[in-house]
Design a protein around this nucleic acid. Sequence first.
DNA 1: ACATTAAGTGATT
DNA 2: AATCACTTAATGT
Length: 210
Amino acid sequence: MKDKLKDFFAHQFESKLIDEIVKVGKVKFYREGEHLMSVGDKISFFPFLLRGVFKVLSEDDAGNEVVLYFLERGDTCACVFINSLSEVKSCIRVVAETDSEVILIDVDHFDEWMVKYKSFRHYVLESYNLRLKEMIEAIDTLAFKKMDQRLLKYLHDKVQVLRVTTLNTTHQDIAYDLNTSRVVVSRLLKQLENEGKIKLKRNRIEIFDI
DNA sequence: ACATTAAGTGATT
DNA sequence: AATCACTTAATGT
C-alpha cells in the first residue's frame, strides 16, 4: 500500500513530503452514495482523491441542492483549504459518485506543510485556482444558461469524469442535481434523443456525442 | 398476476 | 420552466 501511495504522489511532491503523507494519512474507502462531507460538518481533515469520482453540491436551508462540479483522481476539495485555517463548518456537500478511495490528512499538518514544502504550496494554489475556475463556470451556467444547456453540460461533465458513455441514473436523480423537476428533465432528454445525441432506456442513458 | 417505480404527455400557469 | 394529473412501460415479488 505504501509503495502504491509513493507512486501516486511521486511526480507531484518531494520525497520528504510523500513520506509524511504516507505516515500521517489515513486511506479510506467510500461506497457510491456515501458522503465525504455534509453541510455543517466541522472540517478536521483534507482529502486527496486516489480513485473514483465525487460530486460537490451546494445546499440551502430549504434543502435545494445544485451540483457545482465533480472531483476526480488527484483532486482535492479546495473548499476545505479555506476552512482548514479557522474552525469553520462546511458550506458544501461532497458525495461519492462511484466507489472511491481517499487519503485523509488531519488539518493540523496544513500550516506546517505550506511553509515547509514548495510542492505542497503549488499544489494547493493550483487546485484552488482550478476549483475557482470551475466555480465561476458553475455560476455562469446557473445564472445565464437555460435548462437545456445546463443539462447538456451536466451530461458532458459526467461522461468526462466517469469515463463512460452510458450513465446509470434516473431522470429524477438528474433533476435533483440540477434543482429542477423530473418532468422537465424527461422532456429535455427526449428532445436530445430525437436529435440523435442520446438513447434513453429505463435507468440508463447512452450518450453518443455531446 | 399484482404492486411499485420510472418515464412520457397534454394542459395550465 | 414548473406543476398537475394522468397514462404507459419496465421491473421486482
